[in-house]
Computed example of a mutant assay.
Amino acid sequence: MALPVAQPAEVLRAWQKDDLYEKQLADYIARLLPSHHAAKSVPISSILYKSFTTLKDLQTLGEEYSGIVQVNDSYYKLPSFSSRLLSIFLSAFGENFTRKLLRNAEKSIEKNGSLRPEAQNVFLVLLKALTSMIPQIISIHRALCYMNGGPIEIGKSMTGIDYVHVRPAAAAYYAHLRLLGVVTLIHSFMSCGQSFYQAKKYMDQMREIPNEVDSSKSCVACLEEMTQPCVLPCGHIFCMQCCYGALETCALCRSQFMKNNVVPLMNYYPGEFK
């Protein structure tokens, strides 16, 4: 007899516990690394934590707390070693790897002399919009998990990993979690729409003034002309509205930062030192 599929609330509870333990481990690792390599503590902690649990066919601390176990799409067997290894890689490096692919695609388009300038601008802006929507794509996946169940991490979904409940009685489906999923989904789609709107607005500006628009003077987070530039601890520069607003990690290198570490640049104008 097959075990019951894990309820979304149990999967979420396990993910929250594991995320807490990984962040604590990342803090310890960051203290051992030089300051300019501190950002690497996050993927290192994720790999170490999952290598000693998931990769060895053991429950993580969060999964043990919630009483759930990883299974493959048959719901009868544990995931294969290759599936678990790939899910760990995607969890640790998937987002950064995707961003690098998009940046490489931007560079390829910039160097492609066979494309017309108008088409080149369209592709570049769409790629920038897609890059800015990566957090929203993650949120959409998470919202669907709140509503329909399944693993919170995209890497597990891509490798066919799911969860079953191993305790005698499965937890009830919480109505408020479904509501949270709906609200998260609406907010994510609105954010994606805003990114496309900003991309279209930027394309219209380039179409109207094709020789005067300088992308080096635009904030890569909101795709608008940079006003009141601020620098993050990692060295990347964004407009003040983004730094003190929606951004929680650097849009370029994904380094986490605190709002009180943002430094306004009073006499700096983007592009003036080119």
Rank of each mutant, 00 (worst) to 15 (best):
L58P: 06
L58W: 13
Q59R: 15
T60Q: 07
T60R: 04
T60A: 10
T60L: 07
T60E: 04
T60I: 06
G62P: 02
Y65G: 00
Y65T: 02
S66E: 09
V71F: 11
S74I: 01
K77C: 05
P79Y: 02
P79H: 04
S82M: 10
S82Y: 08
S83I: 06
S83T: 07
S87H: 00
F89E: 01
F89L: 10
F89K: 01
L90S: 02
S91H: 03
F93C: 04
G94Y: 00
E95T: 15
N96E: 11
T98C: 12
R99H: 12
L101V: 14
L101T: 09
R103I: 10
N104C: 03
K107Y: 09
E110Y: 07
K111E: 15
G113K: 10
S114W: 08
L115R: 03
L115K: 06
P117Y: 02
E118G: 02
A119G: 08
V125M: 07
L127E: 06
L130R: 04
S132A: 15
M133C: 15
M133N: 07
I137F: 14
I137T: 08
I138D: 10
S139H: 12
H141L: 08
A143I: 04
M147G: 06
G149M: 03
G149I: 04
G149C: 05
P151H: 00
P151G: 01
I152R: 05
G155A: 03
G155Q: 01
G160W: 01
D162P: 00
D162E: 13
V164G: 01
V166K: 08
R167V: 09
R167P: 04
P168N: 11
A169S: 14
A171Y: 06
A172G: 14
Y174E: 15
Y174R: 11
A175S: 13
L179R: 10
L179C: 08
L180C: 06
L180R: 11
V182I: 15
I186D: 04
I186P: 05
H187Q: 12
F189H: 10
F189K: 03
M190I: 15
S191K: 10
S191D: 11
G193L: 04
G193F: 05
S195Y: 09
S195I: 01
Q198P: 00
Q198I: 00
